[in-house]
Computed example of a mutant assay.
Amino acid sequence: MPERPDLDVFANVVLLTPKEHHERIVERVPTLCDIKAGLASGVTRLPNNCGLIFNVLGNDSGEVKAQIREFWKIAREERLGVTLPAQFLWR
């Protein structure tokens, strides 16, 4: 039986948004399962077309935060038509 990776950091983002935005966001967010990097993520539609949920598992909080930031960026671009400002250097 293959050894399971230690994925101790978990995060999720719930995005409540109209159905017309779902497909474009889902298309831009790839499902990720990289055992060597210790990172897994994916997006799922919520019941009744009320929004999306993005889940991330990892072994490094910095990598998990980067995945969340990328999802946030995509959601803003598709929903609002603007991207995220550059991240502060000291974070």
Rank of each mutant, 00 (worst) to 15 (best):
A40S: 15
I35S: 13
C50F: 07
Q67Y: 05
G58K: 01
F88R: 11
R79H: 09
G42V: 05
N12P: 01
N12Y: 13
G51D: 05
V64F: 04
P18G: 06
L46Q: 02
F10R: 14
S61K: 13
H21R: 07
M1E: 10
D60V: 06
R69P: 00
H22L: 10
E23S: 13
P18Q: 09
A11L: 08
V82D: 08
L16G: 03
V9A: 03
V9W: 04
A75F: 03
N48L: 10
E77N: 09
D6K: 13
F71Y: 09
L16F: 08
V13P: 01
T17M: 09
L57G: 01
E70P: 00
P85T: 06
A66I: 02
L52F: 02
I25Y: 01
I74N: 01
W72M: 11
E23M: 11
F88D: 12
V56H: 01
G51S: 09
I68E: 08
I53G: 01
T17H: 04
H22I: 06
A86N: 12
L15D: 01
L7E: 06
K65W: 10
Q67H: 12
I35A: 14
V43D: 00
L15Q: 02
R76G: 06
V14C: 07
R24G: 02
Q67P: 03
N55S: 14
C50S: 13
T31L: 12
E3N: 10
P47A: 11
R4N: 10
E78K: 05
L7Q: 03
S61V: 13
G62S: 15
V29Q: 04
P2M: 12
V82N: 07
F71K: 02
E77M: 09
G42M: 08
Q87S: 12
P18F: 07
K73A: 13
T83I: 04
Q87I: 06
R4A: 12
V13Q: 12
W72S: 09
E3W: 09
G38R: 02
T83G: 15
L16C: 03
N55I: 05
E78G: 04
I74F: 05
I25T: 02
K73M: 07
G62D: 15
N59Q: 14
Q67I: 03
V13C: 08
R4Q: 14
E78P: 01
K73E: 10
K73P: 00
N55P: 00
D34Y: 05
D8M: 12
R69S: 08
L80P: 01
D8Q: 12
L39H: 02
I25M: 05
L32V: 15
P30F: 10
A86D: 14
Q67C: 10
T83Q: 12
D8H: 14
L52C: 00
V14R: 13
